[in-house]
Each structure stands twice: as C-alpha cells, then as structure tokens.
Design a binder for these strands. Sequence first.
DNA 1: ACATAACTTTACGTTGACGTAAATGTAAGA
DNA 2: TCTTACATTTACGTCAACGTAAAGTTATGT
Lengths: 137, 137
Amino acid sequence: METHPKDSNRTYSIRQLSKEFDVTARALRFYEDKGLISPQRKGQTRLYSPRDRARLQLILRGKRLGFSLVEIHEILDLYTPKDHGAAQMRATLHKYRGQIETLKRQREDIDAAIKDMVEGCVWLEGQINELESETSN
Amino acid sequence: METHPKDSNRTYSIRQLSKEFDVTARALRFYEDKGLISPQRKGQTRLYSPRDRARLQLILRGKRLGFSLVEIHEILDLYTPKDHGAAQMRATLHKYRGQIETLKRQREDIDAAIKDMVEGCVWLEGQINELESETSN
DNA sequence: ACATAACTTTACGTTGACGTAAATGTAAGA
DNA sequence: TCTTACATTTACGTCAACGTAAAGTTATGT
C-alpha cells in the first residue's frame, strides 16, 4: 500500500478539484493568480494538496457569503498561522473579532430575510386555502 | 398639522435616501433603471415614498447577503403581492420555499465561518497568554 | 509513431455594478 | 437677476471575476 486510502500526502489534479466543487479550471488558476491558493508543481502542472483543497472550500464558502476575492484573501490569512510578536498577534486577534462581528451582522440579515419569507409563505398558503374553500362551496 | 410626524404620505428626495443609507444617487438611479424601484415624479425629480424606502432597505440587505441585482429583483417580486389564480400562487409559494432553503444553506455557511473564527480567536488568545507568562518568568 | 486527452501560458472579451464627466433644468436665497 | 445647490439625462469609463480562443507542452494508450 503505497498510498493508503486516507493519505494526507495525496494530490488532486486541477480537473479533479474543478469537478468536485463545480468550478472551472480557469477559476482555480485565477484564484492562484490572486494569491488565494498556491499548489505545488510537478514540472508545469499543478498538484493540489489536501490543504489546498481545504483552502478552496473556504474560498467557495466566502463566495457564497458574498465576499470579494480580496476579502476572502484577508480571511484566508487568518487561517494561515503566522508566528510573530505579541503586537502582531493582538492585531490579528482584532481582525478575528472584526470578522466575527461582520458575520454576526450578516446572520441577523439572514434571519430577518428568512422570517420575511416564512411569513409570506404562511400568508400565501392562507390565500390558497381560501380559494380552495370558495370553490368547494 | 398638514404632515404630521409619522405620515405615510411623506416623501424623500434622492439625496435624503442616499445619505441615510450611504449609497450614491447614481446607485439609486441605477436600481431604478434595473426595475428594482420606481419612485414617483414631480416633474422630472424623483420622490421616494416610505414604501420605496422599504424596498431600498430590502435591496441593500440583499446586497449585503451577496445577491446580484437580478436575484434581488426576483426576491422583491415575492414581496409585491400579485393577485392571480391558484396555479400562479402555487408557483410563487414554490419560489418562497426555494428562497428559504437558499437562505438556510447560507446560514449554515455563516455559522460554520463564525465557529472557525471563534476557535481561531480562542487559540490566538492562548498563544498570547503563553508569550506573556514567558516574559513574566 | 501518432493521435488523443489533459495540462500549460498569453491575451483579449464579457458581464455586472456602478463611477464620472458633460450638458442641461429648476427652485431658493442674496 | 444672478448665483448656488441639487436635480436630470446621456454616455463613456472602470474594476472585479472570470470566459474564451489560440498556441504550445506532456503523458498515455494503441
């Protein structure tokens, strides 16, 4: 067993990743161009590690949440542990907290939107029931 | 009292709205161009009603959640009550439910992101405390 | 050996969401 | 009446996030 099932050393081709997450290879190269991801090279071709794969997941989650690639880049920076002085670490901590606040505000927006939609849904169901009871009279 | 405090007949100028919500007048005209909002006119100039204001709030919430203007347009359609047959109403109901599902998925993303950030935060705080206890030795 | 498939880079094209400049209109105050 | 402030339309500019076409390289099967 050269490469056993759950090997953290396995790699993915650009097509594998693009198919798995339903993004184009062009997009993956674009993200690399923007410094969001940096796969190894075997010659010219890209080899994505499981860590690269995880980063891609974070990128796509950021996109689903409406963040720009620049914002996603900053968020990814928070995931990649730097090892510097206490001052820098405090600054990073500040960014973490800011990000958490941003996300919490976003969740309030979502909860409000869900509430609206559920209410509209209930109202519509009522209307439909009215129509049905009319026809049955 | 011609126009008492909480008059639902009051109007807003384009500047008032743009200042209140911190968007440019250009953006408001653009949204109008895309059919997202349709203020009355007094001659040439736009007069926004409280309902227009509410629509704008919905637009901006949609933007914060990362929806495109086209998507926001569809969402706004759900808010504006149409009065047609049961078949159409069922179709609308279906859209409501789809939108709710979309929003719920988005909330899962947010919750996951918040969890990540909080964990990173806690870890960082630990690191900082370590550094501090070292210097106090 | 040769086609085929999958990879690469380079570079120009496209779409969405506005920004910005130009030319013009209108209402209020000095 | 003249200026100042805010409004309008028209039209071209811009930036992000890729799409797409062209031209070439590498691995793999027959």
